[in-house]
Design a binder for these strands. Structure first.
Length: 858
RNA sequence: GGAUGCUUAGCUCAGCGGGAGAGCAUCGCCCUUACAAGGCGGGGGUCGUAGGUUCGAAACCUACAGCAUCCACCA
C-alpha cells in the first residue's frame, strides 16, 4: 500500500542503483533496432548546473521512450577535459597554496590536473545518478583517454598530410592572463567605454600636421606607416611624404590605400602590423616589418624605450601624458567600442602576431555546405532556423587556431629535429634523442569535435561504430553551435563520410526568475541538487522539459516546480485509490467494447486518443505538447470524471470487475506514458501495481488500440460532463452550496439510462426522473437531451436568464448562418469543417426553440 | 552594419489558418472516505500597432515600435 503522501526523497532512494544493477542502461541487444546518441560531455571543471540538466534530461526522456518502444538504445556518457577552463581552475587552486605551474613543471602539474579530474569526475557521476541519466557506463569515455588521444593524433596527422593543418605566423587573439592563444569563438566582444585619442603627427619637411586617432596608443611603438584614403582630398597631397610618430619620434611613411574609411575618425590611420588583424593584411600587402611591442603578459618590451616592462595600460596612460606634454595631444574622445574579452579569464584580449597551428577551414566548410543541400544526408535542426546559424558560420568561417600554450590537453604530435629544426608530424613518437615535441596542446574543442565517432571506437572500425554511428540525435544549447556542433559536423563528414547525427535538438538557456542569465558574478545560479532536495528530481525533470519551447530561453520558476510536484502527487493519489479499489485478489477481465457501459467506453476511448497523440508528439520531440496532452487526460477525464464516476459504478456488483479492470488499465498506462519524464515516481507506482514485472524498464510503451476508440462514446461522455458542469455552475450562480439538494428531470432518456445514481452523487440530486415533458424550472439543452433543474423558481429571474440565453443563441445562429450562407466558405472550406458548422447550427436552433417555448409558457 | 527571436489573462508561458489555453495569482463555495501540497465553480484577453493575403488571421505576408540575443576587422 502506498503512503498517503508522495515523498520524493523516499521514492528516489535506491532506484538508480537498481536500474544500473539490472543492466537496463547497457546497449547491445542485436535483436532490436539500434538507436544511439552521445551525451554532451560536461567539463570536469566543477559541479553540474541547470544548463547540464537542460542538456541531458531531454536525452534521457528520448532514451527511456525509445527503449520502451523496443529499440536497442545506446547513450554514451563521458566528460570533457576542458583545456583552458580546467587548467585555469587548477592553477587558481595552486595559487592559493602559493605555487605556480612553473614551480611544479609540466609532469607534476599534469598529475595535479588528473587529481582534479578524478575528484570532479566523481562528483559528476553522483549528479548523473541523482538526475537519473540512463547512460551506458560500460562505454563511458573521456576526451583525454587513450582512444580519444589516438583519434586526435590520427585526425591531426591526416589533416596535416592533406595540407589542411598548417603552422603559420598570423594575428591571433592572445589571452595575456592565461598566456595562450585563443580561437575567434573564444573571444567575447562587448561594448565597453573607452577613449579615442587624437594625436598630432608632424609632416616631415613641412609645417603641416596630420591628426591620427587611436584607441591603443601603446601599440604606437610598433607602427610602420600612416594610411589615408588616396581619394581623400584633405590628405592626398601628403601621400609619399613622411610624418613623425609622436610616441618615439621615428619617421613613418604616409601611404594611400582604399581600405581607409574617409568618414571614420580623422580619415588618417596608423598601421601596426603585428598587433592588429587589418594592419597585418596591409603589412603583408606592402611588405612592412612586423614589430611586436608587447610580451606574452601584455607588458611592453624593449622596443618601447623607457616604457620597457610596463603594463599595457600603465604605458598607455604614461605615453598619453608624454604626448600631451609635448603638445601633440589634440583631444580625447570618450567612446563606447567593441572590445574582445577572453571567454575564460575575461581579460581584454590582445591581437598579436604569433606562430600557431591552424586548420584551413574553407574546404571543410564547403563539404558541410554541400552536404546540407542533400536532404537524405543532412543534419536536420530542430527548430529549423538554427540551420541558418550553422550555414552562415560555415560561409564566413576563418581558419581555426588550434594550438594553445597550455599543458592540460592533447599535446600536438609535431616534433622538431634537434639538428635542423625541421618539423615531423607523426602519430608515433620518433626517437626523442633526435627530436623535441611541440610544447603546445590542442584547443579542447579539437577533441570534442570527434566525440560522436571517436567514442564509438573510431579510428578503428569497431562493431559499435558500425552499429551505432551515425547517432540519431544530439541535444544541445544554441550557445555552442559554433564551438561544438559545427565542428563535429565538419570533422565527421571529413573523416567518416557521414553526418555525426541525423538531428540536432536545440534547446534554449535557463535564466533566473527575473530573466537574467545565471552567472557566478550575479550569484543567481541555482544548484540542481538544492532543487532536487526540495521538490524531487522528477518535478525538476518535468518542469524543465515541459515548460519550454525548443530553441527559446526559459525562466527558472519555483512556482512551476511546485505545480509539477502537485501533479505528481495527484497521480500518486489516483494510483493509491485505484489500488485500494482493486484489493488483494484482483483479476482483470477481458474488455469487450460491445459490452462496456457508456462511461467505460468513454474513458477507454479517451485513453486511446491520448496514447496516439502523446506518441506522435514524443516522436517529434515535442515534450511540451506531449505532456500537456497527458496532463489534460489525467486531470479532466480520469481524475475529475471517470475516477469519481467509478465510485458509483463499483457499488453495482455486476459491473465491478469491468470497472476495476478499466481503472487498472488506465492508471497503468498513464504511468507508462509519464515514465520517460519522471522515472522515479513512475517506477515506484508501477511496482506497486498488481502484475508488475521486476522494473518498469521491462515494460513496453502503450499501443493505440483502434477497437477501443469510439468518437460516439467520447461525445456521450462529454455531454454528461457538460451537464454536471452546468448544474454545478448553476448552483454556484444561485449561491447554493455545492451539496445543496435539488431535483432533476431528464428528457428523453437515451443515452443516459441508469445515470441517476451518478447524477445523485455528483449533483446531490434528491431525485432524478425521466419525463417526456419537462415542467418549470431551469432547463439545459444538449443536442436533443434536456435536463431540468427543479427549484423554487423566481419567475422574473428565470425570464432574465432565458432571455440572456436567447440572445447568445441568436448571435451564435447568426454567425453560423453567415458562414454557411457564404458561397466561398462552402466551396473552399474542408467538408468536415462545413459539417461541424452545420451540426452546430442545427443544435443551436433546437436549443433556441426550447428556450422560446419555455419563455412563452411562463 | 547585418541576422534571428520575442511581444497572447495580473505574472510566467503554451498555441502558430477554422470561435482564445495552462500554471500561479484572484474571487466564491466545500474538511464529499485518492489527493486541503486538495475539490468544485467564477471573474479576467480589441492575442504590440498599421496595412495586406484568405470564405475565414492570434497564427501567413509587409511596414513600424519596443525588448532580447547572435554575428561583423571599423582604426
Amino acid at each position: 500500500m502506498l503512503d498517503k503522501h508522495y515523498d520524493h526523497a523516499l521514492v528516489e532512494e535506491g532506484k538508480y542503483e537498481s536500474w544500473k544493477k539490472g543492466g537496463y542502461f547497457t546497449a547491445g541487444d542485436k535483436s532490436k533496432q539500434p538507436f544511439s546518441l552521445v551525451i554532451p560531455p560536461p567539463n570536469v571543471t566543477g559541479k553540474l548546473h541547470l544548463g547540464h540538466v537542460m542538456d541531458t534530461i531531454p536525452d534521457d526522456i528520448i532514451c527511456r521512450y525509445k527503449r520502451m518502444k523496443g529499440f536497442d538504445v545506446l547513450w554514451v556518457p563521458g566528460m570533457d577535459h576542458a583545456g583552458i577552463a580546467t587548467q585555469a581552475k587548477v592553477e587558481a587552486k595552486l595559487r592559493e597554496q602559493g605555487i605556480s605551474r612553473y614551480d611544479l613543471g609540466r609532469e607534476k602539474f599534469l598529475e595535479k590536473a588528473w587529481e582534479w579530474k578524478k575528484e570532479y569526475g566523481d562528483t559528476i557521476h553522483e549528479q548523473w545518478a541523482k538526475i537519473g541519466l540512463s547512460v551506458d557506463y560500460s562505454r563511458e569515455r573521456f576526451t583525454l583517454d587513450e582512444g580519444l588521444s589516438a583519434a586526435v593524433k590520427k585526425v591531426f596527422v591526416t589533416l596535416y598530410n592533406e595540407g589542411l593543418i598548417y603552422q603559420g605566423e598570423k594575428i591571433i587573439n592572445w589571452d595575456p592572463e592565461l598566456k595562450t592563444a585563443l580561437s575567434n569563438v573564444e573571444v567575447i566582444h562587448s561594448d565597453d567605454p573607452g577613449e579615442f585619442y587624437y594625436f598630432k603627427y608632424k609632416v616631415v619637411g613641412s609645417d603641416e600636421t596630420l591628426t591620427v586617432a587611436t584607441t591603443r596608443p601603446e601599440t604606437m611603438f610598433g607602427d610602420t606607416a600612416v594610411f589615408v584614403n588616396p581619394k581623400d582630398r584633405r590628405y592626398s597631397h601628403l601621400v609619399g611624404k613622411e610624418c613623425i610618430n609622436p610616441a618615439n619620434g621615428e619617421p613613418l611613411p604616409i601611404m594611400g590605400d582604399e581600405y581607409v574609411d574617409i568618414s571614420f575618425g580623422t580619415g588618417a590611420m596608423k598601421c601596426t602590423p603585428a598587433h592588429d588583424p587589418n594592419d597585418f593584411i596591409l603589412g603583408k600587402k606592402y611588405g612592412f616589418k612586423f614589430i611586436k611591442v608587447l610580451d606574452e603578459t601584455a607588458h611592453m618590451n624593449e622596443l618601447s624605450g623607457k616604457y620597457n616592462g610596463m603594463d599595457r595600460y600603465e604605458c598607455r596612460k604614461a605615453l598619453v601624458k608624454q604626448i600631451e606634454e609635448e603638445g601633440n595631444l589634440v583631444k580625447i574622445e570618450h567612446i563606447v567600442h567593441s572590445v574582445g574579452h577572453s571567454e575564460r579569464s575575461n581579460t581584454v584580449v590582445e591581437p598579436m602576431l604569433s606562430k600557431q597551428w591552424f586548420i584551413k577551414m574553407k574546404p571543410l566548410a564547403e563539404r558541410v555546405l554541400a552536404q546540407q543541400k542533400d536532404s537524405e544526408n543532412k543534419v536536420e535542426f530542430l527548430p529549423k532556423r538554427f540551420e541558418n546559424v550553422l550555414l552562415r558560420w560555415m560561409n564566413t568561417v576563418e581558419d581555426w587556431c588550434i594550438s594553445r600554450q597550455l599543458w592540460w590537453g592533447h599535446r600536438i604530435p609535431a616534433y622538431y629535429s634537434k639538428k635542423d629544426g625541421s618539423v615531423l608530424v607523426s602519430e608515433t613518437e620518433p626517437d626523442m634523442k633526435e627530436y623535441t615535441q611541440d610544447e603546445d596542446v590542442l584547443d579542447t574543442w579539437f577533441s570534442s569535435a570527434l566525440w560522436p565517432f571517436a567514442t564509438m571506437g573510431w579510428p578503428k572500425i569497431t562493431p559499435d561504430f558500425e552499429r551505432y554511428f551515425p547517432t540519431d540525435v544530439l541535444v544541445t544549447g544554441y550557445d555552442i553551435i559554433f564551438f561544438w556542433v559545427s565542428r563535429m559536423i565538419f570533422q565527421s563528414e571529413h573523416f567518416t563520410d557521414k553526418r555525426p547525427f541525423k538531428k540536432v535538438y536545440i534547446h534554449g538557456l535557463i535564466r533566473d526568475e527575473l530573466g537574467r542569465k545565471m552567472s557566478k558574478s550575479l550569484g543567481n545560479g541555482v544548484d540542481p541538487i538544492d532543487v532536487i532536495a526540495k521538490y524531487g528530481v522528477d518535478a525538476l525533470r518535468y518542469f524543465i522539459t515541459t515548460n519550454s519551447t525548443p530553441g527559446l530561453d526559459m525562466r527558472y520558476s519555483e512556482e512551476k516546480l511546485q505545480s509539477s510536484e502537485a501533479y505528481l502527487n495527484k497521480i500518486w493519489n489516483a494510483t493509491r485509490y485505484v489500488e485500494s479499489v482493486l484489493g488483494e485478489d484482483f483479476e482483470p477481465v477481458s474488455l469487450d467494447p460491445k459490452k462496456l457501459g457508456t462511461l467505460e467506453k468513454y474513458i477507454l476511448s479517451r485513453l486511446e486518443t491520448t496514447i496516439k497523440k502523446v506518441d506522435e508528439k514524443m516522436d517529434a520531440y515535442q515534450f511540451g505538447a506531449a505532456s500537456e496532452t497527458l496532463y489534460n487526460f489525467v486531470y479532466d477525464d480520469f481524475c475529475s470524471f471517470y475516477l469519481e464516476m467509478s465510485k458509483v459504478s463499483l457499488q453495482d456488483e455486476s459491473k465491478s470487475d469491468t470497472v476495476k479492470t478499466v481503472l487498472y488499465k488506465v492508471i497503468r498506462e498513464i504511468i507508462l506514458l509519464l515514465y520517460p519524464y519522471t522515472p522515479f515516481i513512475c517506477e515506484e507506482l508501477y511496482l506497486s501495481l498488481p502484475f508488475a514485472k521486476k522494473s518498469i524498464m521491462e515494460e513496453t510503451y502503450p499501443v493505440y488500440e483502434k477497437r477501443l476508440h469510439s468518437p460516439a462514446a467520447e461525445k456521450n461522455g462529454k455531454l454528461l460532463m457538460d451537464m454536471i458542469k452546468d448544474v454545478r455552475g448553476y448552483k454556484s450562480a444561485k449561491k447554493m452550496a455545492p451539496n445543496a439538494p435539488i431535483n432533476l428531470a431528464l428528457s428523453p432518456k437515451a443515452p443516459f439510462l441508469g445515470i441517476e445514481n451518478y447524477l445523485s452523487r455528483f449533483l446531490f440530486a434528491k431525485s432524478v426522473k425521466f419525463e417526456k415533458e419537462l415542467g418549470k424550472g431551469d432547463i439545459f439543452v444538449y443536442g436533443g437531451t434536456s435536463l431540468l433543474v427543479e427549484l423554487d423558481i423566481d419567475v422574473e429571474e428565470l425570464k432574465d436568464s432565458l432571455n440572456k440565453e436567447k440572445e447568445t443563441l441568436l448571435s451564435e445562429i447568426a454567425r453560423g448562418e453567415k458562414m454557411l450562407n457564404n458561397p466561398g466558405f462552402l466551396a473552399k472550406a474542408p467538408k468536415e469543417k462545413v459539417a461541424v458548422e452545420q451540426e452546430k447550427l442545427a443544435s443551436n436552433k433546437a436549443k433556441l426553440e426550447e428556450v422560446l417555448s419555455r419563455l412563452s409558457s411562463l
